[in-house]
Simulated assay, not measured.
Amino acid sequence: MKRAVALFAGVAAAATSALAFGAWRWRRSHAAFRAKMLAARRPMAVKVYNAVETEALPPPVRRYFRAVLQEGQAMVSGVRLSQRGRFRQSLASDTWQPLRATQRVTTHPPGFGWDARIRLALGVRVFVRDAYVLGTGSLRACVLGLVTVADLHDTPEIARGELMRYLAEAVWYPTALLPSQGVRWEAIDDTSSRATLTDGATTVCLEFRFRADGLVAAVWAASRPRSATESAPWLCRLDSYERRAGMCVPLFAEVEWQLPAGPAPYFQGRLTGIVYEFDAR
């Protein structure tokens, strides 16, 4: 009996040490990545919002900036986000897993690092990093921070997919959607417009769909990479707008792939915290 207890205690201690090591290794890797992203930040040429720069934009885009920004709003240079939600790991299953995440964003140049923990059965956690920095996209997932189950990086497809995510999520840092920040707007109709952003060798386009009050209801891509070889239409719905640091931003998002078999939602989340950094005047 004593030997069995000692053996069990040894196995438990080894498992605890392995879990702690996996979490430590993941945190260390993400901290190095984040430092690289922050070191790339550059000063902004335009530091405050002037409504004059929106006068030539399509009517729904003008209404949007009128609704979310106030004259003299400082340009967002960085954001720290925290998030809770749920994630559907397999589109063939109706099972959703709880998720918690933090995210760091820079706007000049565009960059972000999303650091998530997805809880599976029996308390097993998957560590996930979705990122775009210095023109390179990446997606990595590790079970317990130890066993890599996904590692996509350094391809034009993943860079395009991640820059699309950055552009869609710019509704959380709306000064990044202004023409002075590099976004080109084209008219589609009275309730939607196309936004184009170029960063280095990567150019992406998204369709922004607006509500009657001027706020963004959804962002749509005709084709967003799902993997190194697959792409599909992609839709992000937005809701629960509130004022934060003078800007009106959505706190809820739901994301889905639009597949031939029908819509395939895979993420639903709510911001639980948002802290802005502004370029010095």
Rank of each mutant, 00 (worst) to 15 (best):
G78I: 01
H108N: 15
V204S: 08
P225C: 07
V249A: 11
I188V: 15
V76A: 12
Q258N: 12
V216E: 03
T198E: 11
K36D: 13
H153Y: 08
D190R: 13
H30M: 12
V143P: 11
W257C: 11
T202Y: 09
A168W: 10
L144H: 00
V124D: 00
G135R: 09
A176L: 07
L122D: 09
G85M: 09
D189S: 01
A261C: 01
A18W: 12
P233W: 12
A39H: 08
P179I: 07
P174A: 10
Q97C: 04
R25N: 06
R42E: 15
R224D: 05
G72E: 13
V46I: 10
R160W: 06
R119K: 08
S193H: 01
R140D: 07
I158W: 09
L271K: 09
F278R: 05
Y49L: 03
C142D: 15
R194L: 13
R42T: 15
M247H: 07
L163V: 08
R125D: 11
V79S: 06
R100Y: 06
L91Q: 11
P43K: 07
W96C: 11
G182Q: 00
A13T: 03
F33D: 08
V79Y: 07
L178P: 05
A9Q: 10
W26S: 06
G269A: 15
R226D: 08
A131T: 09
C205H: 13
K2V: 08
C236P: 00
T203R: 13
L177A: 01
E277A: 14
V183H: 13
T155W: 04
R165S: 15
I158Q: 01
A253M: 14
A218V: 04
R209K: 09
